[in-house]
Every structure is written in C-alpha cells, then in structure tokens.
C-alpha cells in the first residue's frame, strides 16, 4: 500500500539561509503525526515546503505515490492536500457560509458536506449568514478547521490550531479531529506547542530542532517525558 504522504530528504529556506535540512518522514493512511518543537525551529516552514508555498531546494514530496514536489499549491489542494495556516486564515468580510464554500472546489457538494461537517460545529451552522469577522477568536478557529474538513481531505496539515484557544475548545477539537481521521481515513500532520493536545490525537511524533528531526517515536506513556527532555536543552 502506498503511503498517504512521503517526504524524502526535503530541504528549503529563505534567501541564502537554509531552514529545513534533509527532512524525511512518511504518513500512512488515517495516521496522525505530531510535529513538536520550540518556536522558530522551522516547523511552519516545513509545512509550507510540503505544500509548495516555499520552494523545495532538494528532496521530494510524494502524495499518494505521485511526485508533487514542484506542483503549485492550488493543484495540490485539488488532489486533497489541505493546509490550515496559523495566521490570517479567514476571510473576515465574507460570511461563514462563503468561507465554508471556499473549503470546497465547487458548490455541487456543498449541501452534503455542510450536513456532514456541520454536525460537529453547530455554533457555525446556526449563523451561516453572519460575517466571519464577527465570530470570537475560538469560533474563528473552529470555522477554519471546519472549512478544511469540508473537502474530506486525504491529508490535512494543521499549524498551531490550538493557539489562544480555551481548554474546553481544545478538547472538543481533539475529539472532532480524532473522529474525522478514524471515520474518513484522513491523515494529519499536526504542528503544536500544546503537547497534551498533540499527543492526545497523534499516534506518532517527530521532534523538530533547527530545521532537522532530532527524535521520533510512537506516542506512549513516556512520550511526553522524552519530548520534554529535548525541549529543555
């Protein structure tokens, strides 16, 4: 069976400085992988390189067995690789409905997708005509995640979705993502500062430091301890 996403010796950077060095990992179908590490270590740059927003210098990205390293982002999106950025991820002046519509490539499946995704986000489906900018910070995060789920992505890349979120919402989100990955077979790469959340939904983790993977392993009872050991140094 081909893996959902296969990253091999990927390197990239800005200008002349390399921020991602020789990163390799594979992601199986419906697997959730947590990428952890301190800020400024290149985690977001990794996702951007996988997506193509940042051009890869070396290495390759394979999506469902197909080489997509140099494919433009909007085409990857069409194949089912969906990115949830950390900042400015909403159209504040569009309605919630229009924001959700943009999660799909055509309006044909909108009704069905809304029924499916909406069940987990009642707070959104009740206010479809409202402008996204009028939602609270937590609700906006929910909308971003809901929009990403609309297209039933093959692979979901999540960048710090829990930042600034209340603990109760973090738990809700963990629940939604776990169920979605189990029911729909979606694979996820989760970049997180929030360790309990990340390890709660992931089966495996990677520790990222200065653009390189310094440790990886399965999530078990000792995972938190091992990861924190890397963070302290």
């Amino acid at each position: 069976m081909t893996s959902a996403l296969q990253v091999e010796s990927l390197s990239s950077g800005y200008g002349t400085s390399e921020v991602i060095t020789e990163v390799s990992f594979t992601l199986a179908k419906s697997e959730v992988l947590a990428v952890v590490g301190k800020n400024g270590m290149g985690k977001t740059s990794l996702l951007k390189t996988v997506l193509g927003l940042l051009p890869a210098w070396r290495g390759s990205v394979k999506f469902a067995g197909k080489d997509v390293t140099h494919m433009p982002p909007h085409l990857k999106r069409r194949l089912g690789l969906v990115y949830v950025p950390q900042e400015h991820a909403l159209f504040q002046d569009l309605t919630i409905r229009d924001n959700l519509r943009l999660g799909l490539l055509s309006d044909r499946d909108f009704k069905a997708a809304l029924d499916h995704v909406g069940q987990w986000f009642p707070v959104l489906t009740r206010r479809l005509q409202q402008r996204a900018g009028t939602l609270s910070g937590g609700e906006q995060k929910m909308l971003i995640v809901a929009r990403a789920l609309m297209a039933r992505p093959q692979v979901l890349l999540l960048d710090e979705v829990t930042e600034g979120l209340q603990p109760s919402l973090v738990d809700r989100l963990a629940d939604v993502l776990t169920r979605f990955s189990r029911d729909m077979g979606t694979s996820m790469v989760v970049i997180e500062q929030h360790l309990p959340f990340a390890l709660g939904i992931a089966g495996r983790y990677l520790v990222f430091k200065r653009g390189e993977i310094v440790d990886s392993g399965g999530v078990d009872a000792q995972a938190t301890e091992r990861i924190e050991a890397h963070m302290r140094i």
Partner: peptide
C-alpha cells in the same frame, strides 16, 4: 501556562 500550555510551562518549572 494556559496560553503557552504544555512544554513551556514544564520547561519553566525545570
């Protein structure tokens, strides 16, 4: 700790 939950609060304790 709540805002920077997880590793950073732990790190500060360390």
């Amino acid at each position: 700790r709540e805002i920077y939950t997880g590793q950073q609060a732990a790190a500060s304790e360390a």
